[in-house]
Design a protein around this nucleic acid. Structure first.
Lengths: 148, 148
DNA sequence: TCGGTTTTCCCAATTTTTCCCACTTCTGCA
DNA sequence: TGCAGAAGTGGGAAAAATTGGGAAAACCGA
C-alpha cells in the first residue's frame, strides 16, 4: 500500500531518483520493472509492472467503438512504458511523458494506494490550493458521512 | 480518547517532541508506530497506526472515477507517512508535511478524540480568533439543537 | 566500413540522514 | 530549600543516499 509525499528533482538528463523508501516496494526488491503512464489530470502514474497488467486489461476491454473509450485508451495505454531503475535507483523518464505532465525539474512523488503519482511541483500546489482554499470541500456521492 | 492542547517547538532539524503524557497513549506504550497526514485546514493529523487503517480504507473506497474523490485521496493518503518516535520521544516531520502546514518552529498539539492535530501556532491563533470574533459560530446541519 | 552521435551503465565525491549520547532545565518530593 | 529523577534540547559521528560526471557500448548515417 503506497502512501506519502516526497519532493524530488530530475537531473539534467531527465533522470528521476525514486525515493529510497519506495524503491523496494515498487520493484518488489528489484525483481520487477515499473510501468509509467499518463493520467488525465496531467500527472504520471507509476505501477509495479505486475500491478499494471490487470489495469491495462480493463482499459483494453472498454467498448472500442464507444467514443468515450478512445481518449482513455490513448492516454493510459498509449503513453505506457515499461522501465527499470538504474543502479542508483533512478528512472529515465521519456521526453514525451515529461512534456505531457509539464515536468521540468522539481517534482512531487505521491503515494496513492496501488500506484504513485508524479506531479510537476507547481502544478501540484495549484491542485492543492483548490482543495484547501475552498471553504467547504465537497465529498464524493455516497461518502457524505465520512469522518476522520 | 485524546484531548488537551500543548504548545511545543520543533528543533532545527524538524524534530517534534511529542508531549510526555500522550506518548504512551499514542504508541500504545511504544508498541505501535504513528501515522502523520495532512488535513484540508492546513494542519497535520496524528493517528496511532492501527487507528489510521480503517480511515485509509474508507478513503480508498471512494468512487475512483468521481472527480471529487481524487483531491481527498491525494491529500489524506498522499501525505500519509508512518513514523516511530526516536529515543527521546520525538517525531521527525518531513519537509513536505512541514511545508504543507506552514510549520516552522512553534506549534500547537491538539487532542481531537481519535487523533491529534498539529497546527502552526500563528495559524492556530488566527483560526481561534475567527471563531471567537464571529458573534455566532455556525452549527453544522442537523446539529441546530446542540446544547452544552 | 568508418565516423559521429546517442544511449546506457557504473563509479565516486558530496551531501543528507539517522541514530545515539551528553548536557541543561524542570519538577516533585523530602 | 536542596536533591534526585525525569524530561527537554542540542550536537556529533557513522552510515546511507543523492548527484553529477565519465567511459564504454550501441546505434545510425554516410
Amino acid at each position: 500500500m503506497f502512501q506519502g509525499a516526497s519532493q524530488i528533482n530530475l537531473d539534467a538528463k531527465g533522470r528521476l531518483a525514486v525515493p529510497t523508501r519506495v524503491r523496494d516496494p515498487l520493484t518488489q526488491g528489484g525483481t520487477v520493472p515499473v510501468v509509467l503512464t499518463a493520467h488525465p489530470d496531467k500527472c504520471l502514474l507509476v505501477y509495479p509492472a505486475p500491478a499494471w497488467e490487470p489495469v491495462r486489461a480493463q482499459i483494453m476491454a472498454f467498448p472500442s467503438l464507444n467514443p468515450a473509450s478512445s481518449p482513455w485508451k490513448r492516454l493510459l495505454v498509449g503513453f505506457a512504458e515499461e522501465l527499470s531503475l538504474d543502479g542508483a535507483g533512478r528512472l529515465l523518464v521519456s521526453p514525451e511523458l515529461r512534456a505531457f505532465a509539464g515536468i521540468d525539474k522539481r517534482v512531487m512523488f505521491i503515494g496513492q494506494g496501488s500506484y504513485y503519482e508524479i506531479w510537476d511541483l507547481e502544478h501540484w500546489q495549484q491542485q492543492l490550493d483548490r482543495l484547501t482554499a475552498g471553504g467547504n470541500p465537497v465529498l464524493p456521492p455516497g461518502m457524505e458521512n465520512f469522518s476522520l
